[in-house]
């Protein structure tokens, strides 16, 4: 029933002299939302960046839809069908929302070249994008920027979205919208690898979980099972959940 989309095996990453990822291995299935959880500094962002080819993996295998992607350039990896929404959202502040979206459509040289139906659908998912279409993206609020960042990731159909802490610093109402949007995205057939510190959001959307601690994966499994285990959450996420 489930189909393997992304597979990391014993991935090591060095940043300069520092050995950050020390054997990361987990899988993400197609059409599911996989959570990558861990404390601050555990290596979540580094994992996403390694998948994206922004840090070179010094050892290990990463395969995406059956293709080995270690050593490929970031742009190649992106063209294989992985979109990335970084922690800082990666918005181009000098460019308008429209221009941000245009850049995300690789084959479009004008906005009219973008698939209009898809654009309508995106506007529905993220109304802010439509509302501030001609505004410089740098002038938007944090939540609106996050919407633009997510919208930008799906302008072209991508099989896998890597999303890094989308709820960081956002108001609870917006976080709810975010969760809704992600579930809708899943319905439309997308798969998501989500890094999230907001357990509520994680719980709401997550199907599977991988927990990372000090550069190593310490637990993988279905989300409901993981969230039921207080010990896991306590030791590796440093959290005591209040019911």
């Amino acid at each position: 029933m489930t189909e393997l989309l992304l597979n990391l095996e014993n991935v090591h990453t060095h940043i300069g002299l520092y050995h950050i990822l020390q054997g990361v291995g987990f899988r993400a299935q197609r059409n599911r939302i996989t959570l990558l959880l861990g404390r601050n500094g555990a290596g979540k962002t580094t994992t996403l960046r390694t998948i994206m080819g922004l840090w070179p993996a010094s050892k290990g295998r990463i395969s995406f839809a059956g293709t080995d992607i270690v050593g490929r350039s970031t742009s190649e990896i992106s063209r294989l069908g992985i979109a990335y929404v970084p922690e800082n959202m990666g918005i181009f502040p000098d460019l308008s929302v429209k221009e941000n979206m245009l850049l995300a459509a690789r084959n479009a040289s004008r906005v009219t070249d973008i698939d209009q139906q898809r654009l309508e659908w995106i506007f529905e998912l993220f109304p802010a994008v439509h509302q501030f279409w001609n505004r410089p993206a740098g002038k938007l609020s944090g939540g609106q920027k996050q919407m633009v960042a997510m919208a930008r990731a799906i302008v072209e159909p991508r099989e896998l979205l890597l999303i890094d802490e989308p709820s960081k610093g956002l108001a609870p109402a917006i976080v709810n919208n975010m969760a809704e949007a992600m579930l809708k995205l899943k319905q439309s057939g997308a798969s998501i690898l989500l890094v999230e510190q907001n357990l509520q959001l994680a719980r709401e959307v997550g199907d599977d979980v991988a927990i990372i601690d000090a550069g190593r994966i310490v637990h993988t499994g279905p989300a409901d099972e993981c969230f039921a285990r207080d010990d896991l959450l306590k030791t590796h996420l440093g959290l005591a959940l209040c019911p």
Binding site: S75, S78, Y84, P86, G90, L95, L103, A104, R152
Partner: peptide, 19 residues
């Protein structure tokens, strides 16, 4: 636009699929 975007954040331009 790509150049302006790249000046601000080269990695993000690559992550959007441009060499």
């Amino acid at each position: 636009l790509l150049i302006r975007a790249g000046v601000h954040d080269r990695e993000m331009v690559e992550a959007l699929g441009y060499g």
